[in-house]
Nucleic acid binder design. Structure first.
Length: 494
RNA sequence: GUCCCCUUCGUCUAGAGGCCUAGGACACUGGGUUUUCAUCCCAGUAACAGGGGUUCGACUCCCCUAGGGGACGCCA
């Protein structure tokens, strides 16, 4: 049996470093065993998936140097590799389960489900479908479907006992069926949910080993049950530890840079990033810490994967990146710098901002200092303003940050529109509203156009700067954060 | 709240019952090299969550407690 692994990102935003992490382990494991590594796009959420995200993910993964043998861009024997193009396969399988009475049609409205969940939560139970439609006469259900009534397909779940499955890293895990929801397999739009699609695809694509984040552990019983119902062998599962923020919550863009674009744009070398990710939850038998992906492949062993969630430590990544930078030959170093900052594309994005402000080319560098380098360290007195207090500045920064985490597209025009709207809701003049943002982003009260600057820096770097600006202003207490979150939510409503 | 997972220096980790006086790396501190700085070199501070077992012997095995995390969506 040849080993086949996959990574299955969903194209719903910036390419996440966690995707590269899981991709690295999957590809290394496959290569170690002479197998194949597959990229599959899980775009079954029609609301949130978009093609721009899909190509960003593929570009970012290519940038890291991770290569896949089969995928939407290069085809392969098990295609298509984009789930939105496999919908009829999922429908067929869902229908098969309905025919065999292992699944049923459910006509409950979202409102009813919502109320149900709330009540269960209040009673301290795990929220779970109550089975109202499970007892429907199949003929009656079929005629309601026939009549065009909106419905979903749900899987039946054993009423008692527990699901036992093997995790390659932890051994046998046992989860009571009472904790497992009658999962929706097919949504009312006819698209599958993750749980149906992942099982069908992993089986049809010959996946032998599933290496994924450990946040999937609790839904594995659903998958185990599906494999059983379909009569398929379940691939071996190994749940990798989740990357963490310094506060040990799972790594999130709210608290940390997570976009692969950030790592590329601030000048991490992809080989250093992969080396660092290889250190997260895994170690070389001889404890060496500097190694290439090829060296990792030569030594990789799932037995050396640890289970505690590692904190993503930028400090150590910086050191590691420095090691790689210094090991470059002068010519390679020059090439890397050229590819990074002085490439034509990046320069052209700068030109509209700087050309009109330049008399001699030597005037250039001081203007773009904060765009091509770290901005200066901030102190509270930089935020002195004739009308805004420090508290006002913090409020603006907090709300701007909150607004930015909800943005789908990171573009100057969008940022401008959103900032204007926010300033009006907060009843602060736009020019005053912008002041703390200028300082936070550039370290100066006056700088190149703000929204173009933010667009150039990218979402993660911009957010990182706003966060550190709040710290420079003395930070916001937990209590105050809660209050501000509430305030922002209220503003966002109207 | 319910269920599941996890727990070695601040952080990443080594450790598969005696090699442990618990090792390495980052960070930090001190010293050296260097026209400054950085690099580089040397040294130092710092951990087995707690309590019970099992054993001649427990960081390693078992149980309990505590702490942390995750899941509980017509998201993935």
């Amino acid at each position: 049996m040849t080993v086949r692994t996959r990574v299955a990102p969903s194209p719903t935003g910036d390419p996440h470093v966690g995707t590269a992490y899981v991709a690295l382990f999957n590809s290394v494991f496959a290569r170690r065993h002479g197998g194949q590594f597959i990229l599959r796009i899980e775009d079954t959420d029609r609301e949130r998936s978009d093609v721009a995200s899909e190509s960003m993910i593929m570009d970012a993964l290519r940038w890291t140097g991770i290569e896949w043998d089969e995928g939407p861009d290069r085809g392969g024997p098990c295609g298509p590799y984009r789930q939105s193009e496999r919908v009829d396969i999922y429908r067929r399988h869902a229908q098969r389960l309905v025919d065999e009475d292992r699944a049923f049609c459910c006509f409950c409205t979202p409102d009813r489900l919502d109320a149900l969940r709330r009540a269960q939560r209040q009673r301290g139970e795990t929220s779970r479908y109550d089975g109202l439609c499970a007892g429907l006469d199949p003929a009656v259900a079929a005629s309601r479907v026939e009549a065009g009534e909106p419905h979903v397909v749900r899987m039946r779940v054993p009423s008692d006992g527990a699901c036992r499955f093997k995790d390659r890293l932890r051994g046998v895990i046992e989860i009571p069926w009472s904790q497992v929801d009658m999962q929706i397999l097919l949504k009312s739009d006819g698209f599958p949910t993750y749980h149906l699609a992942v099982v069908v695809d992993d089986h049809m694509m010959g996946i032998t080993h599933v290496l994924r984040g450990d946040d999937w552990i609790t839904s594995t019983p659903k998958h185990e049950l599906l494999y059983r119902h379909f009569g398929w062998d379940m691939p071996e599962h190994a749940h990798l530890p989740l990357l963490r923020n310094p506060d040990r919550s799972k790594l999130s863009k709210r608290k940390n840079p997570t976009s692969l674009h950030y790592f590329r744009d601030v000048g991490y070398l992809p080989e250093a990033l992969l080396n660092y990710l290889g250190l997260m939850g895994w170690s070389m038998p001889d404890e060496r810490e500097l190694f290439s992906v090829d060296e990792m492949i030569a030594e990789f062993d799932l037995d050396r994967v640890s289970t505690g969630g590692p904190v993503f430590d930028l400090e150590k990544l910086n050191w590691l990146n420095g090691q790689y930078i210094r090991n470059l030959s002068p010519a390679e170093f020059a090439d890397r710098v050229g590819q990074w900052a002085l490439n034509r594309d990046r320069l052209e994005r700068l030109v509209p901002m700087i050309q009109s402000r330049t008399e001699r080319l030597i005037d250039l560098a001081p203007q773009v200092d904060y765009l091509l380098g770290e901005r200066r360290a901030l102190s509270a007195d930089l935020f002195q303003h004739r009308t805004l207090t420090e508290e006002d500045c913090k409020r603006v920064l907090h709300h701007a940050l909150a607004m930015m985490t909800t943005l789908r597209a990171w573009e100057g025009s969008v940022l401008m529109r959103e900032c204007r709207a926010l300033s009006e809701k907060m009843d602060i003049k736009l020019r005053d509203f912008l002041f703390p943002l200028f300082v936070a982003v550039s370290g100066r009260a006056t700088a190149l156009p703000l929204f173009d600057s933010m667009a150039f820096l990218g979402a993660d770097l911009t957010r990182t700067r706003l966060r550190s600006a709040i710290v420079a202003l003395g930070g916001i207490s937990k209590k105050a954060t809660k209050r501000l979150d509430k305030e922002f939510a209220a503003l966002a409503q109207n």
